[in-house]
């Protein structure tokens, strides 16, 4: 049954996987160069660039990114849960508008949202917010769609009759929420939190405009260092910053099937 065309397809798919994974593997390999040039294949073998990546110059923005992403994920979830409930469970005037605005950052260029925030905060005299607070606000805006959608999906996936069944068995609205609704959507809440974290952690287009020296995520730090050329340190750093979301997804996989939620993930790069 699996005939000629299928074998050809397998070959093509193999080549595409090389295309997908090659550059990431090459980046990892480059970090082992002996000299400070990004040779591939690497010349010599050294771990010194990995050590270099742990210099304060890089640890500071890395920690800043972690803190920002964690806080963003918590705030986006705190705002996302009530929004998802409102969208999924209620009809109210203006629902379509609020929903469009909430999901808007997914569709509109993040870059434009970033410069709009930069311009607006400056003009209304809140320029001192640039850096930490502006980043938190901006990241919550662009990560909110991820938490809202993921939570909404888990609310939607829950058969409505389960809540009715609980009510029929004598559970009041709060008991239904506590014993039935909430436990069932917890994986969705965690997944939404993880997506918000990853999206914040990997963002560059928003942070580029509203960060400031000393208060900038690792992506912005790498970007501004690039003006001085590519060093294997950056390769090591890139791989380190890839490892963090990977670990997170592995943990997430223990809660829910990652595939289910990755399917829904359609953000921007």
């Amino acid at each position: 049954m699996r005939s000629g065309p299928w074998i050809l397809l397998k070959l093509v798919v193999g080549v595409i996987y090389v295309f997908i994974l090659g550059p990431i593997l090459i980046t990892a390999a480059v970090a082992f160069n002996e000299s400070n040039r990004s040779y591939f294949p690497p010349r010599g073998f050294s771990l010194k660039w990995w050590g270099e990546a742990f210099a304060p110059q890089w640890v500071q923005p890395l920690m800043f990114s972690l803190e920002l992403a964690a806080l963003t994920a918590v705030v986006a979830t705190a705002i996302g849960v009530p929004l998802a409930f409102a969208f999924q469970r209620y009809e109210f005037p203006g629902k379509t508008l609020v929903r469009t605005i909430t999901l808007g950052p997914l569709i509109l260029p993040t870059l434009v949202t970033g410069i709009a925030l930069l311009q607006f905060l400056t003009v209304i005299g809140l320029g001192r917010w640039l850096g930490y607070w502006a980043l938190l606000i901006g990241h919550v805006i662009i990560c909110l769609p991820f938490s809202v959608r993921t939570i909404a999906i888990s609310l939607q996936a829950m058969p409505g009759s389960v809540e009715n069944a609980a009510a029929g068995l004598g559970a009041g609205p709060l008991a239904v929420l506590r014993y039935v609704t909430f436990p069932i959507i917890v994986p969705g809440i965690f997944a939404g939190m993880a997506f918000a974290f990853i999206h914040s952690f990997t963002d560059i287009n928003m942070s580029l405009f509203i960060a400031k020296p000393g208060q900038r995520p690792v992506t912005v730090a790498i970007m501004s260092f690039l003006d001085f050329g590519f060093a294997p340190t950056l390769a090591a750093l890139s791989i380190l910053s890839l490892a963090i979301p990977l670990v997170l997804v592995a943990l997430l996989g223990r809660f829910v099937g990652i595939g289910n939620f990755l399917y829904q993930e359609q953000g921007r790069g």
Partner: peptide, 23 residues
């Protein structure tokens, strides 16, 4: 294989682009 093909989503676009610069 599905997870593998989607895995680049986990990396910052800088990581993804860096490799091409090396190449």
């Amino acid at each position: 294989l599905i997870a593998l093909s989607l895995s680049p989503l986990l990396a910052s676009v800088i990581v993804r682009t860096y490799g091409w610069w090396v190449i």
